[in-house]
């Protein structure tokens, strides 16, 4: 039995130290998944905690023949999707003015040397482009291109056929590429001026 399985077993028996170790094994990955899905640190923290609470409550039903990482990501994915639905519903009740204010809320930045600014701005652009993808594409980009999961693992996590994973990865990347290209074109124009 590997360390992870031992920690799971001990956690099921109520050993909180073991559960704490289990949390430490996955907190970075799950927090980062939630962060990229929401593009908001506060929401990501809240959701990641929700994920671990669900994991704790449901450990008893985890089947040891499945991969724990797949299982926990699946919980994270479902939690983020559920949150997205709730948020979308709440946004419907906001006035357009408030919604615009939210979108225009760009954090202040310290001035940077030219080179650093170029790479940081491009870096921020790609983050923005990911944040704008619809949840299904966003999750697939995070799992494949940030967290390097295989196509089959992604199919298991998202519970979708392998063919859908393939097509969604292709579409999400193509969309990201085109969005980034048009944003970069606008960005370069601004720089020339």
């Amino acid at each position: 039995m590997n360390i992870e399985s031992q920690l799971i077993k001990r956690s099921i028996d109520g050993d909180m130290d073991a559960f704490e170790e289990l949390v430490l094994l996955y907190d970075k990955q799950i927090y980062n998944y939630c962060f990229r899905m929401t593009n908001n640190a506060e929401d990501a923290e809240d959701l990641a905690q929700e994920v671990f609470i669900k994991v704790y409550r449901s450990l008893g039903s985890f089947k040891s023949e499945s991969k724990f990482s797949t299982w926990i990501y699946r919980i994270a994915h479902n939690t983020c999707i559920d949150n997205h639905r709730k948020k979308k519903f709440r946004l419907l009740s906001l006035s357009p003015r408030e919604e615009n204010d939210r979108q225009m809320n760009v954090p202040d930045r310290e001035p940077l040397p030219e080179d650093q600014m170029v790479s940081r701005e491009k870096y921020d652009l790609i983050k923005e482009c990911i944040a704008e993808l619809k949840p299904d594409y966003k999750s697939i980009i995070i799992l494949r291109d940030i967290q390097n999961y295989t196509y089959q693992e992604i199919a298991d996590i998202l519970n979708i056929p392998l063919g859908t994973v393939k097509s969604n990865i292709s579409r999400a990347r193509a969309l990201l590429r085109e969005t980034l290209k048009s944003r970069l074109a606008g960005y370069d124009e601004r720089r020339v001026k």
């Binding site: 669900k54 409550r57 449901s58 450990l59 008893g60 039903s61 985890f62 089947k63 499945s66 299982w71 699946r74 919980i75 994915h77 479902n78 999707i81 997205h84 639905r85 979308k88 704008e132 993808l133 619809k134 949840p135 299904d136 998202l158 519970n159 979708i160 056929p161 859908t164 097509s167 579409r171 193509a174 969309l175 969005t179």
Partner: peptide
């Protein structure tokens, strides 16, 4: 309550290739 969680997530979603900030096609 005890959490039967093998988690059925939405099945196939062949949605459009546009940026969709509302999320669901």
């Amino acid at each position: 309550e005890s959490g039967v969680m093998s988690f059925e997530s939405p099945a196939e979603d062949e949605a459009a290739m546009e940026v969709d900030d509302t999320g669901y096609a």
